[in-house]
Amino acid sequence: MASLRFTPNLRRHVQSPASQVAGATVLQVLERYFEVNPRVRGYVLDDQGAVRKHVAIFVNREPIRDRAGLSDSVKEHDEIFVVQALSGG
């Protein structure tokens, strides 16, 4: 299972505990997480299911490539981190 963590800045708005989640892609991991934590979805993804413009998702320190479809593959023991994209000041 992959390890999924969220920026602490999200905690002010919504409970988003770290979790171990199974899945072969970033989308599968997030969908399983949202089944348990449905409110978190709208903070990370937009209306079309793409990563919000000012949110970034890293897999093992590398930003994902497919921000619209989240098809980047995930392996056992990978670390996924959802953070605010630095933009503006």
């Binding site: 708005h13 709208g42 990370v44 209306d47 919000r52 000012h54 605010q84």
Partner: peptide, 27 residues
């Protein structure tokens, strides 16, 4: 308007004593 984390709706049923997150109009 939470910027990074998008638009959110909050609703109160008791004149602003308590608030809870409500559905966001989504496309």
């Amino acid at each position: 308007d939470l910027g990074h984390f998008g638009v959110k709706m909050q609703r109160s049923e008791d004149g602003a004593r308590t608030w809870s997150e409500a559905a966001v109009p989504a496309f």
